[in-house]
Amino acid sequence: MKRKITFILNGSEVSIETDPALRAVDVLRQDLGLTGTKEGCGEGECGACSVLVDDTVKLSCLMTAAQLEGKKIVTIEGIARRQELHPVQQSFIEYGAVQCGFCTPGMVIAAVGLLTANPAPTREEVRDAIGGNICRCTGYQKIVDAVEDAARKMREGHSGG
C-alpha cells in the first residue's frame, strides 16, 4: 500500500514511495538516510525527533508519513546553510552545550524554532522552549547559555538561519 508522497525536505523537493502509515521519523531515518533526527522514546516525551514543519517545531515520531505531503520539512541536516553553521549550532559548540549529542539535533531544532518566533527570548523563555527536549547529560545550563548567545549573534546580524 505504498503511496507517493511529495514534500520539501531541507530546501529541495523530494518524492518518495512509502507506506503512509509509517512514522515520519522512520521515513526520514530509514528511507531517506537522514539519521541526524534521533528517536529517544517514540511517544513524544523526549523531543529527540523534533523537526521543523512549515517552520514550526513538531515531533516526527508522532506524525505519519502521510502528513509530510506538501509540507516544508527541515531536519538537523538542513539547519546549516551552504556549509555555514547556523548561529545556534555555532553557539552550541562554543558554549559546551553538546555532550553525548543524542538530544542535540532536537535541541537545535527547538532553539531555531524559538528564535524564529521570538528573537529576543528571556532565559526563562529559553528554558520553556526546550522543556520538551530531555537531555540526560548536561543539566541544560550550557544549552540555555548557548541559545541565549545564539539569539545575541542573530540579533547582531550574523548570517545563517
Binding site: 513524544g44 523531543g47 523534533s50 515531533l59 508522532l62 524559538l114 522552549a129 526546550i130 522543556g131 520538551g132
Partner: peptide, 9 residues
C-alpha cells in the same frame, strides 16, 4: 500542556 512541540501538534 506538555511543552512547545506538543502544543504545536
Amino acid at each position: 500542556i506538555g511543552a512547545p512541540a506538543v502544543r504545536n501538534m
